[in-house]
Design a binder for these strands. Structure first.
Lengths: 68, 68
DNA sequence: TCCATACTTGCCATATTTGACAAGTCAAGA
DNA sequence: TCTTGACTTGTCAAATATGGCAAGTATGGA
């Protein structure tokens, strides 16, 4: 399930033509590519706030990245 | 945003006619009404795994409780 | 081959979620 | 009023997410 979530994020990110660094750059509050990578690989159980910041940077609704 | 998420959960829970205790009872892995209450009140930044377990207990897609 | 870019992974310190329990609030009804 | 059920809030310990940095892997191009 975390893996599916991560793949969702990665898919959307690539569709937008963004690298992890680009994505991080679009997030106001500090976040690290380390964390993006961990989330995309399903290696961490992200908090909803982190996912929310990612959804903002990707310019998609939070619910889009929560579609499993 | 955490508050909106919590209100979402509460709304769905009440629509299903469940109390917090009922909801906890439907979740396989251990969870506490303390945590349900904190999430519903937006006092905690829940992890996606916790929200996923709640969505399972509510029998709705995770994306439904992530609609802000 | 060498280099650059993109990504992954390990480690650390700090902050915070979670589970657990106890105590408190609140509303409805006997 | 008293009781009961539902919910909220405080505190604690343990687990873990996060930010940060460094090192490693993989791929493609000069």
């Amino acid at each position: 399930m975390l893996k599916a979530l991560g793949e969702n994020i990665k898919k959307i990110r690539l569709e937008k033509g963004l690298t992890q660094v680009d994505l991080v750059g679009k997030i106001e509050a500090r976040i690290d590519t380390t964390n993006i990578s961990r989330i995309e690989k399903g290696r961490t159980n992200a908090t909803i706030h982190t996912l929310y910041r990612i959804s903002e940077a990707l310019e998609v609704p939070l619910s889009d990245i929560c579609k499993l």
